[in-house]
């Protein structure tokens, strides 16, 4: 049976190990945005032995490229993008830098699922195509790195009760497989 949690980011190991695939989480706190281009830059920095633009320990990264904000708004529409494009970068950030949460939509590969087990991290799903609804839970947004990437720049977001579902937990479970198996008719 799925449980509901209210958690605050950055996340601790105790926060994430209690979660199971299918649980609902309302997340409050600081979340960083990054898509493909920003991930490439982060991993290039690590490979060059350079410091990252934000502290990755306990961090939550949201895979999103928002629309430009209208005057007076912190952010435009901001729903998740498809996560598999970050699969080649995420394990390094989880295993070596202490990344604890990722927010996106769609399948992750086995390397990411294994890293979530090994180093205790969670992959959360947010509802794709609900960019107007999700933007309401974002109270502030500040570009902290790579402004030249436009929508793909890294933004520091403050979110309140951001609605998430646990897709991959720290035990290797995958909601996409569990859920589908329940409803597939052969």
């Amino acid at each position: 049976m799925s449980k509901t949690y209210h958690l605050t980011a950055p996340l601790s190991e105790a926060d994430v190990v209690q979660l199971k695939a299918g649980d609902i989480v309302y997340l409050t706190g600081v979340v960083y945005t990054a898509r493909d281009a920003a991930h490439k830059k982060l991993v290039d920095l690590l490979d060059a032995g350079q410091p990252l633009p934000f502290d990755m320990k306990g961090a939550v990264i949201y895979f999103v490229g928002p629309t430009p904000p209208k005057p007076g708004d912190p952010i435009g529409s901001a729903g998740p993008t498809t996560s598999y494009r970050m699969d080649s970068y995420s394990p390094k950030l989880i295993n070596e830098q202490g990344l604890k949460g990722m927010i996106g939509k769609g399948k992750r590969n086995q390397d990411v699922i294994d890293a979530c087990v090994k180093s205790k991290a969670i992959y959360f799903g947010a509802t794709g195509g609900a960019g107007a609804l999700l933007a309401r839970q974002i109270k502030s947004a500040e570009v902290i790195a790579y402004p030249e990437l436009g929508p793909e720049a890294i933004r520091k977001l403050e979110v309140v009760d951001f609605p998430l579902t646990v897709i991959n937990d720290t035990f290797g479970a995958d909601l996409y497989k569990i859920g589908r198996a329940q409803y597939e008719v052969f």
Binding site: T67, S77, T81, A130, A132, P151, P163
Partner: peptide
């Protein structure tokens, strides 16, 4: 339910339905 609510919010507040426009 979220998808339908999102459509209502988008129409009422003239916000893009999805960030991927």
């Amino acid at each position: 339910k979220q998808i339908l609510e999102n459509a209502d919010i988008a129409a009422n507040e003239a916000r893009p339905l999805c960030q991927d426009t």
